[in-house]
Design a protein around this nucleic acid. Structure first.
Lengths: 162, 162
DNA sequence: CTATCTGCAAATCTTTTGCAACGGA
DNA sequence: TCCGTTGCAAAAGATTTGCAGATAG
């Protein structure tokens, strides 16, 4: 059952290792997960695997097209199977991540293509907003400032470098 | 012309400082910029301003609703004026960032609202893809792996913690 | 004058890199 | 055997925090 991974690797002169199998498994099982989460999962089976290997393996798997990463909005990118395509909706308020079919973006993709020649990759980033559970309420609108250039005198010392 | 900023701050018991004015100006002038870029800009006027202050000020300005941050996909978040609303399109290939009017997303927003009850914040994240200049060519599709749990024997040492 | 801010240094955290040893084919 | 891989330690970045002193009001 691991023939495919092994072959894909061999085809490019790469080697099959237990670590790589574990990372692929973890990505598959976790759906979309950060390197940290993947590392934790892998270490449940093989505690000695270093997080450095996770990073290197994810990069390699992405390069050969087995996984892809998505930016959910905040810091860490999340990795998932290449063919596990969907659009992520992240709720600002509760942090929930909802997955929706990519065809939701078809109309937009077409429009972007027509109007800007931009080919949309709908799955690479997450859309932000508020989920149904977190009804909208807070509204804020204010913005105005000047445009001057002052010479700011710093308090104590200055001219520091490291 | 800076009355607005000062008042907004005072209203919340906060103080008006040259640094804050400079950060607001920089955000406005740069359109969308990382904390690093904002820092550089501010330091052109006031070299002594520390990047720590930039971070703290941006956080504060965001909290009081004067600026907002957007995740362009890769690492650094970019800050812009609260009311400078637009959708970002980031090209995977050349890294170009194109801004488009938010009404591009109206149809999608409506559909999301209807189908999922999800209220879209179109400006918080950037859409990824390929811009017109970077024509598509590379295609890759392959994915299959196993599901086993092996006991991985690590080479040299083990049992390390820090 | 007092509480808020700032600059600096150092602590965190995440991701990357150099290197020597290990192990897959 | 040979070279791709791995673990470890340390480097490199980015962001946060503690603190003493400066400053807005």
């Amino acid at each position: 059952m691991d023939t495919s991974l092994r072959q894909t690797l061999h085809r490019r002169g790469l080697r099959m290792t237990p670590q790589r199998q574990l990372v692929v498994d973890a990505v598959r099982q976790l759906g979309h997960a950060t390197p940290e989460q993947i590392c934790t999962r892998v270490q449940q089976t093989a505690p000695a695997v270093n997080i450095t290997t996770i990073y290197r393996t994810l990069e390699l798997l992405e390069r050969i097209g087995l996984v892809r990463h998505t930016h959910l909005g905040h810091g860490a990118p999340t990795y998932s199977e290449q063919d596990h395509q969907h659009v992520h909706l992240v709720c600002h308020h509760c942090g929930a991540v909802v997955e929706t079919p990519t065809d939701l973006m078809d109309a937009l993709a077409t429009r972007l293509q027509d109007e800007s020649g931009f080919t949309l990759d709908a799955t690479h980033v997450a859309l932000s907003g508020r989920c149904a559970d977190c009804a909208e309420d807070g509204e804020d609108g204010d913005g105005d400032a000047s445009d001057d250039t002052i010479t700011l005198s710093d308090h104590h010392a200055e001219g520091n470098a490291r």
